[in-house]
Design a binder for these strands. Structure first.
Length: 317
DNA sequence: GCGTCCAGGTCTACC
DNA sequence: GGTAGACCTGGACGC
């Protein structure tokens, strides 16, 4: 689908704000979709607004201490004023533009582990997904699979049911919306995309989302424990997956991160990962309290630097 | 080449 | 309420 420029707006994030680190994270986490591209302080990406594909070109015009982000909006037809206002708010929230990192940095600089990562990744804001369903797909595909297979499953879903938008000379793949997946036969879907048992969870979750489950922004506005309680109502979403979808509420320790944080906290990787997950999670929350997620996020993005600084060999993702 | 293990968890039947 | 076992698939590993 070809999109034309339909408007634009400027976002002024709270400094420090490093555009590159925020939209193109060192560990490779995408902002909105795996199909986005980045060059010359510019990100071409896309999302859906009320099912409608929207192309976005985000350009950094400022500096880390005086940040400005110019957003060009591309769509098939003109946007109403109210839609552009809503889009502006969505992009601003997803970029974490209003996040003030000062309090976290003050806390982190007194911590033996975190002081290294906040210096290395100064100005990296925590971003948020634009779609609950896309986060659900990610959280379910991460389960019981190595990272390569998780990526293969998500790519298969995008290839078969996603949508490519073209704008500003770029092509961006958008992930499918819940409405499309909700209509599928779970067994066929699982077979087509090599999802195994996950296929039925994704289709059932899509049906729940289609029938009025709270949207991502509503979830984010809920108190963390209420949001988590709500999220685990979705099929295939348990404790870990809920923390992936709404990370502000938790410390998403899994079979990979249990090695990393086990080594950081206790000086060695646990012998029995499954048994150690709860212990490591509790230790993270005890040490870092309300900053647990930010600590997890910064550490996960800075493993190479942290390995060097602390003289330990942290397993990269 | 073949068999086994287990991976960025969750659900459910059973006690 | 707690817990063992099942669940898809495929790469890694030992033999």
């Amino acid at each position: 689908m070809r999109l034309r420029v339909r408007g634009g707006f400027e976002i002024v994030p709270v400094p420090p704000f490093d555009f590159r680190l925020t939209v193109r994270k060192p560990a490779g986490w995408d902002l909105f979709t795996s199909g986005e591209s980045f060059a010359d302080a510019t990100l071409w990406t896309g999302l859906r607004q009320e099912r409608r594909p929207i192309g976005l070109k985000l350009r950094s015009l400022g500096t880390v201490e005086r940040p400005r982000v110019l957003v060009n909006v591309y769509a098939a037809r003109n946007l109403a004023e109210v839609d552009e206002q809503r889009l502006r708010k969505t992009v601003s929230v997803c970029l974490g533009a209003d996040q003030d990192l000062k309090e976290f940095y003050d806390f982190a600089l007194k911590d033996e582990i975190l002081r290294h990562v906040v210096k290395s990744l100064y100005g990296m804001h925590d971003t948020q997904a634009a779609s609950l369903f896309n986060s659900v797909i990610l959280a379910i595909c991460l389960q019981m699979a190595r990272l390569k297979r998780s990526n293969d499953m998500m790519e298969a879903i995008n290839r078969r049911y996603g949508e490519t938008i073209e704008f500003d000379g770029k092509k961006v793949m958008l992930q499918p919306d819940a409405g499309r997946i909700a209509k599928l036969d779970p067994k066929s879907f699982a077979k087509e995309c090599n999802l195994g048992y996950r296929g039925k969870y994704i289709v059932s979750a899509a049906k729940m989302i289609e029938s009025g489950f709270p949207a991502i922004d509503e979830i984010m506005r809920m108190p963390p424990d209420v949001a988590k309680e709500k999220l685990v109502e979705l099929p295939g979403i348990g404790d870990y997956a809920a923390d992936i979808i709404n990370p502000h509420a938790g410390f998403p320790i899994d079979a990979w991160s249990v090695d990393v944080f086990g080594l950081l906290f206790f000086g060695k990787e646990p012998e029995n990962k499954r048994e150690a997950i709860e212990k490591v999670k509790q230790e993270g929350i005890r040490r870092w309290g309300k900053w647990s997620w930010m600590a997890f996020f910064y550490v996960a993005q800075d493993l190479q630097n942290l390995s060097r600084r602390l003289g330990v060999k942290l397993r990269l993702q």
